[in-house]
Design a protein around this nucleic acid. Sequence first.
RNA 1: GGCCCGUUCGUCUAGUGGACCAGGACGCCGGCCUUUCAAGCCGGAGAUCACGGGUUCGAAUCCCGUACGGGCUACCA
Length: 461
Amino acid sequence: MAVSGTVRVRIAPSPTGFAHLGTASTSLYNVLFARQNSGVFVLRIDDTDMERNRPEYEALIYESLHWLDLDWDEGPDKGGPHQPYRQSERVDLYKEHAARLLKEGNAYRCYCTPEELEAERRQAQAEKRPYKYSRRCLTNPPEGRSVFAVRFKVPGGEVTFTDMVRGEMRFDADLIGDFIIVKSDGYPTYQFASPVDDALMRITHVIRGEEHLSNTPYQLMLVDALGYERPHAYAHMPLILAADGSKLSKRKHPEANLILFRDRGYLPEALLNYLALLGWNPGTAQEIFSFDELRQAFSFERVQHAGARFDWEKLNWINGEYIRRLSDDELALRLKDFVPPLVDEETLRRAVPALKTRLPTLAQAVEYLDYLQTDPTPQAFDAETAQRIRLAIDFLKPVRWEPEAIEAALEEAIAQSGVSKGKFYNPLRDALTGRKVALPIHYAFALLPKEEALKRLERAA
RNA sequence: GGCCCGUUCGUCUAGUGGACCAGGACGCCGGCCUUUCAAGCCGGAGAUCACGGGUUCGAAUCCCGUACGGGCUACCA
């Protein structure tokens, strides 16, 4: 889609909990579109919910987005031509705009209490009539009350706009009741602050989750009433669903926490790749995309219209693909924070080639390496087995302590013992690692100091 | 309740009226390789295209209805 003027997009997460998958996904699509068009990506903190906001959640948003390498051009921490970028610091702006709407007769004060509104709503439901605010405070406001909210006087009519994913959208605004734009605590509602900021910050394309599709006519009417230019287009992206098909929520799905993905050993570029494929497809068989490839291939026309379930299995596969494509040095670097604390860098570096094809996630490395610092409980072997272990010790003793030499020595020992490889190796692996699954035996040996390895064998023999 | 968006293998999806008795990927099953586990290679099972009506010579694809799922309808965002 050709666009004149500088493209400006934004995300507006609210710091009411950890940064989650949906934020990452929406950010990705915004960044992709911005970079495709040499545009500007804005981060705005939507902290107008005084009850639930927490500064530490804002920090978590930065941390998560940085981890994913989704960098913004303007934001609270970076500044920019339209600062401040925290909505709690823009309250005066919203008040000015509300005052203007009030003065021009496009909004009015509402003194109704929550209880009264609830009663109205229930009444409508009882009469099986679609609910719209009664406009009591427009026509016949109660006397002697001082606490008020501000309501937008919905003009009605038809609201149409372009959605880059779904095409032309059309809503009947006569069905929309007058809604609140300023809460009685003086803070704006999302429905108000968002379009005001989008206009003031010159946002050209609003790319967000599908849950906002029905909100769009509300916001557009506001933009029109304020005399601002509307964004060129919207894009409402399909929702990420949990395994049971419900929408991913912070409360019900703590596993959607982005920081958790980092801590579980997912590579940020792999997560992004997976997220891109969840809701979009290239129309080709390609599954693995670098960020640059995504930038080139992505388009809203190929975005899915239905929500997609999050699938850990496929993420694990993509993550493994990325791990296998890393250079040994790079993988060693990334593994550093995940291996047992006693495993030194040199040992890790030597383990990497064997580890590489075995890791769906970085965190899985522990399972292959913890024998290095955890002494396995000694096994009881029968006399014949013990004898073969002694044979292994004899062959191992004179050997240079590295995988190839160890393997060669072991092969000779096997030839002399006359048993199969499996029969010979299994007890060795047990004695050495105490595990049924381990790295190839010659690596398992080589990673452990020679004396320690032989000590474990001798103890078993 | 009203409005909006959806519905193709378990999951993510290709498919825009004939090349589709529906293709790919993950997962699953089997084989090869192999000391274990992976990786890799080869093969396989798996979808009455939500359902019912139309339109058409012909429909997963177009139209209508129904069902189901999701979203919005909050002084949450």
